[in-house]
């Protein structure tokens, strides 16, 4: 360009004009635009749920029951039974799915090796991730609810079926990240395989495993379809998760939000906000737990 003559020795350090610079600009703009586009629905969901749900939320809404019939205006009764049901059922599903999932992942990564059985299990668990949640609900309905009736336990089974492949996959990926040199270091001290797994591999991966498991829990807490067939719709709190109809926040959202009565709609929004808050708390817990376990893995 201009800097050819000897007296102007100033080097031009800017990116040269031309297609390359244009391309860079286009890509940067595209990235910013996609980021904003992704944020819009998220922000919209949050804002509308908070705007419409916040007015309903109160301590008695969260804790007291029974859940009133849909025609009753807002302010009477509360979602207490649904909050309790969601916590009970999700906790039970977690107790079922997380240990199984972690053990499955340990088998796949540490013991399976090139075993065809391990390959098959890994593949089937990936397929299971793609099974629609309503199918899981139908499955539990057929094999459990038809014989033993509606219960929180049946709902927990259905949610556990949903969580299991997620826990397996996330734990497996975390175990795979543990460097082999750590395993060898432990073997070289005369540790058995079980010992290596329990004392070196699991502690090194635990942060990721726990956060993966909590993500699965948060996912399951918000599932509606599997619960529809399995837990029924109780109006009052049922602390016995093992028998009798129960209820949960997603079911209540489903039952209330599509009604013409303003009271029911308000309760639906309130339940939606409560559910989002529960998931949010779980996510934060996941972060804290991960950070805590990561103390020694810098």
């Amino acid at each position: 360009m201009a800097a050819v003559t000897a007296e102007t020795q100033q080097p031009d350090l800017r990116e040269a004009r031309g297609w390359r610079r244009t391309k860079n600009r286009i890509m940067t703009i595209l990235m910013v635009v996609s980021f904003v586009v992704v944020l819009i629905p998220l922000g919209f969901v949050l804002v509308s749920v908070i705007a419409k749900g916040a007015s309903v939320i109160s301590w008695s809404f969260l804790t007291s029951g029974p859940i009133p019939p849909i025609v009753v205006p807002a302010g009477v009764g509360g979602m207490g039974p649904a909050v309790l049901g969601t916590i009970e059922i999700t906790a039970l599903a977690t107790v079922i799915a997380v240990p199984l999932g972690i053990l499955g992942a340990i088998y796949l990564n540490e013991y399976g090796g090139k075993n065809p059985l391990a390959a098959l299990i890994g593949f089937m668990s990936d397929v299971m991730t793609g099974v629609p949640s309503i199918i899981m609900g139908l499955f539990i309905f057929t094999i459990w609810v038809l014989h033993f009736g509606l219960s929180g336990l049946a709902g927990a089974f259905a949610l556990a079926c949903l969580m299991l492949p997620i826990v397996i996959r996330s734990s497996y990926e975390m175990l795979r990240l543990v460097p082999n040199s750590l395993r060898e270091g432990s073997y070289a001290l005369g540790a058995t395989k079980a010992r290596v797994t329990v004392t070196v591999v699991l502690p090194a991966a635990i942060g990721g495993i726990v956060s993966g498991a909590l993500l699965a829990v948060a996912r399951a807490a918000g599932e509606t379809a599997p619960l529809l067939f399995c837990i029924g719709a109780a109006a009052s709190a049922n602390p016995n998760v093992f028998s009798g109809a129960n209820t949960a926040l997603p079911s209540q959202i489903f039952a209330n939000a599509n009604q013409p009565y303003p009271g029911a709609q308000d309760r639906g929004w309130g339940a939606a906000l409560t559910l989002i808050a529960i998931c949010f708390i779980l996510m934060i817990a996941a972060r804290i737990v991960t950070a805590r376990f990561a103390r020694y893995s810098r």
């Binding site: 750590l182 270091g185 070289a188 001290l189 502690p203 090194a204």
Partner: peptide
């Protein structure tokens, strides 16, 4: 092999301290 490795230890090329204290 476990009993063997208890008597015959090994130090590796890349330092591999465990993520512990």
């Amino acid at each position: 092999a476990t009993a063997v490795r208890r008597r015959i230890g090994m130090v590796f090329q890349k330092p591999n301290p465990f993520p512990k204290s």
